Amino acid sequence: MPSVSIDLNSDLGEGFGTWTLGDDDAMLELVTSANVACGFHAGDPAHLLQTCRAAVANGVRIGAQVGYRDLAGFGRRFIDMTPEDLFADVVYQIGALDGLAQTVGSAVTYVKPHGALYNTIVHHEKQAKAVVDAVVAYDPTLPVLGLPGSVFLSLAADAGLRTVTEAFADRGYTPEGTLVSRREPGALLSDPAIVAERVLRLVERAEIVAVDGTVVTVDAESVCLHGDAPSAVEMARAVRSLLTERNISIAPFVS
């Protein structure tokens, strides 16, 4: 049976310099876990520190959102990296964010890959293993967040890491349970009411309707609400309101 408690996570800290992306302050009042950028796909030290400080003020858990070193492409382009280089990049990112988080009385409590890296390691074993090895080397007590059925979560479990499955409130799904490419129709959802009902069905019945109408089973401990969509805050409010109305507990997956 699906859990009556769910974590809500969001990608935050993605501003850079004078550029602001999304309303992090508003999202941090609604979610329970913050996937904070680590400076490779987005974010600069000042933005990341500010996001960590705001997360602490709202009792939100901080996760390291590690990605490819691709500021120009926002980490949404595949990079054919060697496992050795990817390992080093992931350790570097976790350590950088963890250092910032500790200055405001917190720490990195989990790791979630971002964008193209997230999608790549659903199937790419060498890159998935590099990410797993990096987390184990940095702190083997850190949980990892990923797509159910992914190679990444399988290798992470084999390595002794706690694996946390997630679903996406505002992303289209294929019949195979993977995410529809952002370049394809149906990749993004933006209607708060539709998204809220979708999350409710996910939590209560472990189901998501794919773009072709297929009902896909998705058993998730956490639901991602992207913070950079135009209606991100409205969607998050609608989701939280409906779940609360149905007496579903909203709590982080890490204590």
Rank of each mutant, 00 (worst) to 15 (best):
M1Q: 01
V4E: 12
S5D: 02
S10P: 12
D11Q: 06
W19Q: 06
L28H: 13
E29H: 15
E29Y: 12
T32A: 07
A34C: 06
V36C: 11
C38H: 10
F40V: 06
F40N: 13
G43M: 04
L49M: 04
T51D: 09
C52E: 01
R53N: 13
A54N: 15
A54I: 11
V56K: 13
V56D: 00
A57S: 14
A57W: 03
N58K: 15
R61G: 12
I62H: 08
I62F: 05
Q65L: 04
G67K: 07
Y68F: 14
R69S: 14
R69M: 07
A72D: 14
D80N: 14
T82Q: 11
D85G: 14
D85W: 07
D85P: 12
F87T: 14
F87K: 15
A88N: 12
V90H: 13
V91I: 10
Q93D: 05
I94Y: 10
A101C: 07
T103R: 05
V104Q: 02
V111H: 13
K112S: 11
P113D: 04
P113T: 08
L117H: 08
N119T: 04
E125H: 12
K126P: 10
Q127M: 12
K129V: 03
K129A: 11
V131L: 07
V132M: 08
V135W: 02
V136N: 07
T141C: 08
L142G: 11
V144H: 10
P148Q: 04
P148A: 05
D158M: 03
G160N: 05
R162M: 13
G172V: 00
Y173V: 00
E176R: 01
G177F: 01
S181L: 04
S190Q: 14
V195L: 10
A196G: 08
A196W: 02
E197M: 11
E197A: 13
V199S: 09
V199T: 05
L200G: 08
L202H: 01
L202M: 02
E204R: 13
A206G: 02
V211P: 06
D212C: 06
G213Q: 06
T214H: 01
T214L: 00
V215M: 00
V215H: 02
V216P: 00
D219P: 06
S222N: 05
C224T: 05
C224L: 03
H226P: 04
G227Q: 03
D228V: 00
A232D: 00
A236M: 01
V239F: 01
R240S: 03
R240V: 02
L242F: 01
L243T: 04
T244R: 08
E245P: 05
A251R: 13
F253W: 09
S255D: 12
